[in-house]
Design a protein around this nucleic acid. Structure first.
Lengths: 156, 156
DNA sequence: AGCTCATTGTTACCTATACTCACAATGAAC
DNA sequence: GTTCATTGTGAGTATAGGTAACAATGAGCT
């Protein structure tokens, strides 16, 4: 704690930086005509990630936990993605309350376009950094994001 | 460019991190009953910063540029801050188009409470990092935020 | 003078994201 | 089988931002 006052400005810069990153990401998505918003993009990637690690498509609740939002927020996102044919709601045969979210072929196509958009946005923001600096930043972010996975509704 | 594919996940982590930071900041502001939103908090700090560096209170357009939003977005924020007595709209005697935004005593009080909230939010998020790591992160962020100050309306 | 054009802030409206609350359907436990 | 927990969603709200149109003002030019 040699300089505790530095954390405030540090937080400010972090927020400003990510504001730019988010804007750049949104901009890239619009430019490329992928037709999805940043939050939908994040959901699609989460979908793919879950499938790789669990084999089965996630439930709405799984997505909510992963995205760190309340389940209700996921509904809206899935609504939009389903309307544009990127995902499909599939009822779970074992438990009629749950809905599995499957990615469609169109969704997979979007995912790859999306990867480009995300990379371009990252490149635009991270341009001033060398490869070494990027990996250092990556390490720091890994440390920061490592453990705590507390959803907002369980805060307090 | 030893591993260009790393930028995508890096961007993801950056965005996730700031989602948490933003949420924590909001949470802190609510807890302490400061009665302002994160965006208003940012405007207040910008106000103070401008005053320190220019001596005179900023115009709406100055704030918009500094915050990297369109002028219209500033109007809403100043509306809210003025309604709660934190700032004051003062007409410029030299140019009747411009409005100077002055911070009130109540606004200054809010600023100090706000500093605590921001620090607490930063602390909550940055907890896993040592002092050295924080300064490294600070350096990286300085590099990233250094130059480009392009407002959104001038993008493209 | 007057006429044109740029600047400045704002009114009105729209979008994206995420929240809370209430609720219906379902499963689980006693 | 009545009670309780889980799961997803309808309805409504708040925050943050954007566009488009506009009125008021200043500046430049003839």
């Amino acid at each position: 704690m040699s300089s505790p006052d530095a954390d405030g400005p540090l937080a400010d810069q972090l927020l400003s930086l990510t504001r730019r990153l988010h804007r750049s990401h949104k901009h890239q998505l619009e430019q490329r005509g992928v037709g999805i918003t940043p939050a939908q993009s994040r959901l699609l990637r989460t979908l793919s990630h879950h499938l790789q690690h669990h084999g089965s498509p996630p439930r709405m609740a799984d997505l909510a936990e992963r995205l760190e939002v309340v389940p209700r927020a996921v509904t809206t996102l899935v609504d939009a993605l389903e309307a544009s044919g990127k995902v499909r709601r599939v009822p779970d045969p074992d438990n009629r309350r749950v809905i599995r979210i499957e990615i469609t072929d169109e969704g997979r196509t979007a995912l790859s376009e999306l990867r480009g958009a995300r990379r371009a946005a990252a490149e635009e923001i991270l341009a001033p950094l060398t490869d070494v600096e990027r990996s250092v930043l990556g390490e720091l972010l890994n440390t920061l994001m490592g453990d705590t996975g507390s959803p907002p509704e369980r805060r307090c």
